[in-house]
């Protein structure tokens, strides 16, 4: 599962992120060094406002660091063009948000198919694959439903299916259980465990201790710095 010999897939070196609002500078990330290998299951924890989302967005190439280096599979991300970054987000990464972010005018299967549209797959293949993915997250019977017709947990599972659309190497999730009750949250956690077993690298922002307890590695952020980086010796079985 986890490949310890290969070079890290993701490597951050003294990454900072500074927001300036008017005259005030917010130093949200203050020098992050981090290496993530293929197949890891990483939880990012920390108090609210400690910079978890900011870090995850940088890792997911949705945002850019103010300074420092980000190497993805050995290549400097800051040198990539918009098209290359779009391609990375489309093919290599999958993203799951706390608020699901499904498009309400599309059905579940159409939502799941969206990344495949940008990936260049034909419509029929896309919908076939999205039905397979929906079946995999337990929504085989809801492919034609619109998001508003689904419960929160179901919507998040649609969002996960969408994140998996182009068989990503890394799945990013920002508080994926934050808007769900504990039972449905648990279902999502179980699903993540399975995905990791299948080889997907997982980086999950959470302050849900149950999520963290399922990860193999837990990072604690405080005030823009990594204050703890531990391997979970006893991983909760899923």
């Amino acid at each position: 599962m986890m490949d310890t010999t290969a070079a890290p897939l993701i490597q951050l070196e003294s990454v900072t992120k500074v927001y300036t609002t008017g005259a005030i500078r917010y130093e949200v990330l203050k020098g992050i060094d981090l290496a993530v290998r293929r197949g890891e299951y990483l939880a990012l924890t920390g108090a609210s406002g400690s910079g978890k989302s900011t870090l995850l967005n940088i890792l997911g190439c949705l945002d850019v660091p103010t300074s420092g280096h980000y190497r993805l599979a050995g290549e400097e991300v800051s040198r990539k063009t918009d098209l290359e970054l779009a391609h990375i987000r489309n093919r290599l990464f999958g993203f799951v948000f706390q608020s699901f972010n499904l498009l309400s005018r599309y059905t579940a299967e159409e939502n799941v198919a969206l990344p495949m549209t940008y990936g260049g797959l034909g419509r029929r293949e896309r919908l076939e694959k999205s039905r397979r993915l929906l079946a995999r997250v337990g929504l085989g019977d809801f492919t034609r439903h619109y998001p508003t017709e689904l419960s929160g947990g179901m919507q998040q599972r649609v969002a996960i299916a969408r994140a998996l659309a182009n068989d990503p190497a890394v799945l990013f999730a920002d508080e994926p259980t934050g808007n769900l009750d504990s039972k449905t949250g648990m279902e999502i956690i179980t699903l993540f465990g399975q995905l990791n077993t299948e080889g997907v690298t997982l980086i999950v922002v959470t302050h849900d201790t149950r999520v963290a307890s399922h990860a193999r590695r837990v990072l604690s952020l405080s005030d823009g710095r990594i204050i703890k980086d531990e391997q979970n010796t006893v991983v909760e079985s899923t």
């Binding site: 997911g60 949705l62 918009d82 098209l83 970054l85 779009a86 391609h87 987000r89 489309n90 093919r91 993203f95 972010n101 498009l103 969206l114 990344p115 940008y118 990936g119 969408r162 994140a163 659309a165 182009n166």
Partner: peptide
């Protein structure tokens, strides 16, 4: 934002 996050380029 969502479309960009799942792989739409500026051109798209």
């Amino acid at each position: 934002g969502l479309r960009k996050a799942i792989g739409a380029s500026q051109r798209d």
